[in-house]
Amino acid sequence: MDFNFFDKDGLSLLESLCNSFGVSGYEHETAQIIIEKITPYCDSVMVDSVGNVIALKKGKGQGNKKIMLCAHMDEVGFAIKSINEDGTLQIDGVGMVSTVLPSKRVVVGKNRIKGVISARPVHLNTDKTKACEISDLVIDVGAKDKQQAQALDLLGEGACFESEFYTFGDGLVKAKALDDRIGCAILCMLTKESFDSDIYFAFTVGEELGGVGAAAATRRINPDFCIVVEGTTASDFDGAKEQDKVCSIRNGAVCPFMDGGTLYDKDLYTCIHEYANDNGIKIQVKTKIAGGTDAAKIQRSLEGIKTAVISLPCRYIHSSSSVAAIEDMQSMYKLISGVCKKLK
């Protein structure tokens, strides 16, 4: 079966995953969507003690290798730290810089109350070059005072961006949480294919907290190989120096030899690049070593796991408006599917 991200089904799955609420530590809604999608196609599906969704699709072959595919469910977001006298909410961020926060829309807590992140009025701003810090900002849900806000039971609840999913320009998608709902979407679609090897699908929690779920999942699965399917940062801006771009959208799947946390398995890296080149699939490496993934935790698990990462280049990652190319999603999908069939 040749899955195509250009078709409506692929994009609408990605849309429902991107729009779901899944801030690190609050991944339940995203997990439910995934469980619903994959259960018909897998031999077993479980939620482990930390909240990872782990599924197995048995291979058709003999003496099968165990391949683990890993995508994280969590996204950057906030937790409500305290409630102010005027009914606004003081926040703490998970995995984000404060520069993308002012003046954005959010949803808060299990009742998904709508709110906005504050922005200081430009008229009252004395130092216009200074970026604000997260402690300067609040979420405003419209509560009149502390008492009313307290009654909403929001203390300790999560909050995530609200941002529509849409396609625009020359084949691009804009959404929140493309990192890493693209990985989740690709894994979900892969459960429909058949493989010779046993494929373990690990949808992990807490990647943005440093790979909380990935370590637990790896120890449970103990795979022969692991491919982490991710979203990575593309800084292919006009005027950016070539060495600062990291990678570029429309240039294909990103398979780096290393990143901020991992030196990837050389054999697996070579295998992936060979497959891409042999089959005319666009592939690129990172030109700047930045960021880390679940791979760091996975590689160091048990006696050491052969690990590689295949990522989608995303502009403005970790913001409410990340942007990626549909053709890169397609390249990634073909590549991962092919490599899983090739690995023996």
Binding site: M96, V100, T233, A290, G291, R315, Y316, I317, S321
Partner: peptide, 10 residues
């Protein structure tokens, strides 16, 4: 959308 620099690079 307005550009933004991701945390890993800022």
């Amino acid at each position: 959308v307005f550009s933004s620099i991701p945390p890993h690079l800022s």
